[in-house]
Design a binder for these strands. Structure first.
Lengths: 240, 240
DNA sequence: CCGAAACCGGAACACCTGGTCCGGTTGACG
DNA sequence: CGTCAACCGGACCAGGTGTTCCGGTTTCGG
């Protein structure tokens, strides 16, 4: 309709179109979002992120039109790191070591960042980045699996789905502090990697330090420390 | 203060104080709640449970004053079953077999019932039943662990926390259909049990059938089947 | 058979969530 | 320095959740 277009039309992909204060706010928002999502998961409120970033909700929504887009932006670098993990593993001359390292690193990332798994799993349909990286990582891992099997270290009946299994299982490991989560995750990875081995050593491998994961911290995390079962108090109704 | 107490005071624990129709409704509610929680997790709405049970919300709330109490009641028998699993395991003359069976059965229960884990984990503070059973099961498992170690089958550095680890990891295994969840859970249990073994066989144990767990079903369960990466479309930005 | 107490269902309440609107403010450019 | 669009923040909207209230109905002892 309007035949005249403005002379100074900006490249629509230009990121510098933001005013200086707006850019500052945007960065602050992203920073806060990353921290908060990592610490408390993906379910934190948009209001809270806005409050923590010292901006209003409208500002937040003007920068990221939907929560989905905020999550995507916040975890973009994590996704990149995830992809690079697979690349590093493929670059390792020892296939089995590469395989193990990749698994351990991904598990650690998952454990450190509470929201990462959720962001990865829910995989908002529109955020093509996520899907792309995921497909790419899958592909790389298939190659990795093949090589590890060929090297004779990975058991032949290892299925590609076992990797999904491991990731999902690791996703179940969440504790209130990142440290406990990492420790637990590390032990889980070590245990599973051991059972993936084709020829397990007769004396089982030493395994990393025993997981300091506390029962009360993770399972019954709603009760206060209390007196750790006063022996005679709680029992008595225990049928065995 | 009031010195006079009513003559016909009822035993507060008497369960027969319900009118016949009220009792029928109560049972129907419990039945529906069990089914729905198992199939769709603990997050189903009180409205929906009431609707499915063919009663009004008020009726539901009169019977179970809070959602918490409904959950507790609905999972009471599951908790009992959980305890009996440990008892059975302790009754087995072969400690290692008992250990394995207990682990497998608990994992299966967890996989079949989506809400079970959540109910068990969240462990509402007031529902003492849960806490009691949990403590009891823990105690029994400690005994089980000890015996399995003494028999030489369970590796010496197995920690009690590894059990929590397993349960939490298994909790991460959730799929849209109960069958896939059970299959995946079974494989996870088999893998972990193998790495718990003190003297793993040189050729790794055959393991149960490969898990038919599908990547798209569990990880990217929001996207439609689509054309499974049209090869040329998405790639091109895959760095390796 | 009858009346009262217990029951029933749906409307309503308080609260929280993602997301939008509008009047006042501020940075950037001539 | 002045103008004006872009920006800012809090109020607001729609939808959904656990929970409560109230008028009509049903059961059950006498």
């Amino acid at each position: 309709m309007t035949a005249r277009t403005p002379l100074l039309v900006r490249d629509p992909a230009e990121p510098q179109a933001l005013r200086s204060d707006a850019l500052i706010n945007r960065n602050r928002i992203l920073e806060v979002a990353r921290e908060t999502f990592a610490a408390r998961g993906i379910d934190v409120t948009m209001r809270e992120i806005a409050r923590r970033a010292g901006v209003g909700v409208a500002t937040l929504y003007r920068r990221f039109p939907t929560k989905e887009s905020l999550v995507t932006a916040a975890f973009a670098d994590q996704m990149a790191a995830c992809a690079s993990v697979v690349d590093d593993a493929l670059a390792d001359p020892d296939p089995w070591r590469g395989f193990c390292t990749a698994v351990e690193r991904i598990c650690a990332m998952q454990a450190v960042d509470k929201g990462f798994t959720a962001a990865f799993v829910s995989a908002f349909p529109d955020s093509i980045d996520f899907e792309g990286v995921r497909a790419c990582a899958e592909e790389g891992f298939a190659e990795l699996t093949e090589r590890a099997k060929a090297s004779g270290h990975l058991r032949a009946d290892f299925a590609q789905e076992d990797l999904t299994l491991l990731i999902m299982a690791n996703g179940g490991i969440i504790a209130d502090t990142a440290e406990t989560a990492v420790a637990a995750s590390r032990r889980l990875a070590a245990l599973l990697l051991q059972s993936f081995l084709a020829h397990p050593a007769d004396p089982p491998a030493p395994l990393p330090p025993a997981a300091p994961i506390g029962l009360h911290n993770v399972v019954g995390n709603l009760q206060e420390p209390s007196q750790a079962v006063p022996a005679g108090q709680v029992s008595g109704r225990c049928p065995r």
